[in-house]
Amino acid sequence: MRTLADPDTPFAVVDVHKVRRNVERLATRAERLGVTLRPHVKTAKSLDVAALLHAGDRPCPVTVSTLAEAEAFADGGYRDITYAVGIDPHKLPRVVALLRRGVTLRVLLDSAEQAEAVAEASRRAGLRVPTQIEIDCDGHRGGLEPDAPGLPEIGGILHEAGCLDGVLTHAGESYFARTAAEQRLAAENERDSAVAAAERLRAAGLTVSTVSVGSTPTAHAAEDLTGVTELRAGNYVFFDLVMAGLGVCRVEDLALSVVVTVIGHRPEYGWILTDGGWMAMSRDRGTAAQAQDQGYGLVTDLAGNPIPGLVMTAASQEHGTLTARDGTRLPELPLGTRLRILPNHACATAAQHHGYHVVDGTRTTTAGAQVVQAFWSRVSGW
């Protein structure tokens, strides 16, 4: 029997009990809102984690951020996949290969040039490449604004080739919506932008089947998704300190952590040193602009209990520096003490690891140790 005291540090840990709780929370909400939930698997990038999304039944629809994910999930039996990054025409042969395997793989675009490339690939392959037009609802990244003059033209190119599937938007600015009211407004704007774009296309005589919206903050804030067909979110399976800082979840909901070991002390500086630097945690400092800056992560003991006031405040490649917040006494943590760090950004931290040591925080040994039940690998690459 292996526990969290056994593997060499640093390593990533997933609490499966918390994942199940997080998954159930959003699934219940999507059902109440009357939309299909299409989880984004880019956070965990794990078939084992994804299996918790549908309780072992027929694989659910998923969203991916790379074609490597699409290919891995197709190998795992998933047949309804949306590739939610603007399509590079050079990658279309890989898309066509998945379509030939019987996978419904939707691609995303926001320009006439991309639409022409998709239409040509469809004609050459003799099959339909289902395509969604990306809508920019908040100036966050790519996409067309709902009233963009070029929207009907792009829709027409895809429609003529039999490729138009629908529209998709992502409220990226919702990650800066610091109150519940702001998150509700972001969700309303996300919905309204996608629905308005769909209606413009329909008014031009084009068929729009899918109206897709979603981000972790808006998915948990939306109260009315009239006109929307599906909801996407990804971070929610693990959650992180950014989401906790926004009030989308609680710190105790965070399912991902990194186990590190105390390797040194610099009492003259008020430092405790660990073997978990940015190669284990990532350089993400997503909470820096929030009301409570959490440095590179909050520190817990090996059982997952937060150590009051202790924060990972600096990181070099393989060293993490822990310090106490103002007014908090630095705890006595001898050399060799194992700790867990809760990350700012679950997606970025997970990407630093090959996979996850899986525990159930509700089950421990008689000595209180958490047993490693499994190791779940991740998909990597693009």
Rank of each mutant, 00 (worst) to 15 (best):
G309L: 05
A197F: 01
A171D: 05
T104L: 07
Q114G: 12
A221S: 13
E223C: 02
R200A: 01
M243F: 08
R58A: 13
T328E: 14
V311D: 02
A194V: 08
T300R: 03
G143W: 06
R124A: 15
S46A: 11
H90L: 14
L339Y: 04
R178C: 09
G304E: 07
V96Y: 09
L109T: 05
R340D: 11
L302H: 04
T28W: 00
T349G: 07
E134A: 09
G361D: 04
S282L: 01
A196R: 15
R378M: 02
V311P: 00
S46Y: 10
A30S: 02
R58T: 15
A125T: 08
T28L: 10
V19K: 07
A115T: 09
L52K: 06
L92H: 09
M243A: 13
S316P: 04
G214C: 03
I307C: 11
H170R: 10
C60W: 05
Y356W: 11
A50Q: 12
C249N: 12
T226F: 00
N305D: 09
T366W: 06
L201K: 01
T226C: 01
V95G: 06
A350P: 07
F238M: 13
P331K: 03
W382K: 09
T287G: 03
M279D: 11
L185E: 15
K91D: 14
G309K: 02
D275N: 15
R2E: 13
V107W: 05
T364H: 12
H345W: 05
C60E: 09
H319L: 08
V129S: 05
P39I: 08
G172D: 03
R20G: 09
G327E: 05
D88M: 08
E190F: 00
L185D: 13
Y175Q: 01
H54N: 11
N305K: 11
Q183L: 00
A289F: 06
I157L: 15
F73A: 12
L37T: 01
N189W: 06
A112F: 01
R338I: 10
V13G: 02
S111F: 06
V213I: 14
T131E: 05
R123L: 11
L206F: 01
V129P: 07
R2H: 13
Q294K: 11
H40M: 01
